[in-house]
Write a protein that binds this DNA or RNA. Sequence first.
DNA 1: GAGCTTGTTGCGAATCGTTCCCATCAAGGT
DNA 2: ACCTTGATGGGAACGATTCGCAACAAGCTC
Lengths: 131, 131
Amino acid sequence: MSTTKRNTWQREAVRARLAEAQGFVSAQQLYSVLRDEGSTIGLATVYRNLAQLTEAGEADSLQSLDGENLFRSCSTGHHHHLICRSCGETREIKASVVEEWASRVGAEHGFSEIEHVVDLFGVCERCRSKA
Amino acid sequence: MSTTKRNTWQREAVRARLAEAQGFVSAQQLYSVLRDEGSTIGLATVYRNLAQLTEAGEADSLQSLDGENLFRSCSTGHHHHLICRSCGETREIKASVVEEWASRVGAEHGFSEIEHVVDLFGVCERCRSKA
DNA sequence: GAGCTTGTTGCGAATCGTTCCCATCAAGGT
DNA sequence: ACCTTGATGGGAACGATTCGCAACAAGCTC
């Protein structure tokens, strides 16, 4: 093999904090949590590791409505999200309907290699009653 | 009424170029097209007008996979997009299946005021055969 | 048309998220 | 212990977008 991947406490730290966060977190958030804990990890490293974890399928990412990349420790398999605009609570949702629809529509238009971005934003019950 | 909206040649210019562009364009792209034509319009103004047109429902916007805001002059009504990753060609698609699915899933989880982001990216026929 | 009010503009500075560069460090095999 | 080379950190660099503000001008009113 050519590319060997090494384990560093930094990557472990990112993985750990990501796992214990509920909902999606931004790289910056993760970074400040880590620094506040006294870690000397660098911002660039957080970004690198998040990207790597995402690529490895250990995390998934999405863009918030205002263009920030958010990450979340992820159960395997393709799925989408239902996210509370107010408190950030997230539910993973399976959507075979949508998967099927996406590839069908793509095919109908002669498109291949379809990727889709499908995420729902709303207000959860708890936040609604608070307002 | 309190907020009166004025018509400026700048807004008109943005509207015009946006309309004649096929597919989605970024604010920056629009800006350089305009400047290349000799316009003295400012970048901030392009952003401001795009935001305004979007809010007014004359354009719709989405984020490209790499986090840039793209805009397109828009036929009215809610719809989604199928975009060629390679040449940028865009097809508007109606997706009642998805609309219905979105609100159903939202409701099942007790969420209200559901907004959804649903866009498909793929490679169109033409680009595929070129490769 | 003159005058006034106030939405708009252009510009440069300022943010913000993210990536790059690179000398230094250290993980994991030998 | 010793190398090789992936990984790190930090500060500079970047690209997209927004802000601040003084100068402008659109659309009244008279």
